[in-house]
Design a protein around this nucleic acid. Sequence first.
DNA 1: TAGATTGTTAATCGATTAACAATC
DNA 2: TAGATTGTTAATCGATTAACAATC
Lengths: 208, 208
Amino acid sequence: MITNKNCIIRLSRYKNALYRLQALGFVKVFSDNLADSVGGTASQVRKDFSIFGISGNKKGGYQIDSLLEKLNSILGKDQLQKVLVVGAGHIGSALMRYRGFEKEGIKIVAGFDIDPAKINRSNPVPILPLDEAKAFIKSNQIRIAILAVPDIAAQSALDLICAAGIKGVLNFAPLRLKAPDGSIVNNVNLEIELENLIYFVNVAEKTK
Amino acid sequence: MITNKNCIIRLSRYKNALYRLQALGFVKVFSDNLADSVGGTASQVRKDFSIFGISGNKKGGYQIDSLLEKLNSILGKDQLQKVLVVGAGHIGSALMRYRGFEKEGIKIVAGFDIDPAKINRSNPVPILPLDEAKAFIKSNQIRIAILAVPDIAAQSALDLICAAGIKGVLNFAPLRLKAPDGSIVNNVNLEIELENLIYFVNVAEKTK
DNA sequence: TAGATTGTTAATCGATTAACAATC
DNA sequence: TAGATTGTTAATCGATTAACAATC
């Protein structure tokens, strides 16, 4: 099955839109409606669904509840996803306290840091010494981590957690990391996001 | 000039790579080297440059310092970019304290919140009442903002700051906002980033 | 000069969109 | 039935890559 990142992101958006439609009392949806809700085309909605073998009714559109079941299953949302945060600095701490993940079935189960002053085992999300990460990852079978450590520490922290069993990492350090074999690293680069925004704002300003 | 977001992101990466090469003592660079540093192809490097009329020497590659000058000018890095943060919750506060923007010439000049308890005018980055945002934006001519408020407040906060003169917004609220005319909204959706990662980790697991 | 590298055009690749037969 | 919507194939679009003449 050939799928690109954008396609999967659209599945997430469809899912979110479907929950909103469901909350409004809708029971079924047409590719047309769904396209409007996420800002795409009806063609693309049907195409995306067909890639995953999701089918509707030739005239009646799609049942929202069964569509949600299928999307949730594809997106791995039929089980709670345990995630850990490496780095308890500003960004890492904010993510540990962020409440938005819960409703998506994502639970941050622990944070890790090398700084002894940051350790706090009685926190709602306990902050543990990085030394203990390996054992924790193995015994809790964690596969996903958020990396929010200083640039200089990022590669070694990545290597450490991947060696312990982490398979997917969301990296906030603004540098390109070498993903160990068998692991995936996605990047959130805030500096580059802002630079990008500044570029397009400048362009819009000039062409005005 | 037709440019897509990916192309501009690559320009940022070239810039960052060039600073690293410069720090290592290099004076010139070939499209080949640069491609290696950012994980692209030499063709694409030359193509990207040609889009912006950047030329090198037929045999001698590119002078790093003059190349950096050109990239910095394109990316608007020849002047300090003043940015404000709307929402002084976990994420907003973390961004205000984040030191990584400075080295990119991006300065967070103020935060805004509706909660009187969050107001702190003597903070290194002062946190002001949202009421004052309009006057602040106008008198300081701010064009870029980071939006980190609860979902429910996001659209109205966006409308408010855009009406005051904000042209580009980096939005952290995980919902699709309607950008007022003349303004650009880019989204950082952490829930969707994690969902995406989880999907690809699951796929890798299955196909193994 | 010979060899190497650029700059640009052409070819390829992949993703999106349009079209339409199937069908409820 | 007539009309509307899906599912899929074909066409289009845009971005990336390859190729190569120009040239240092």
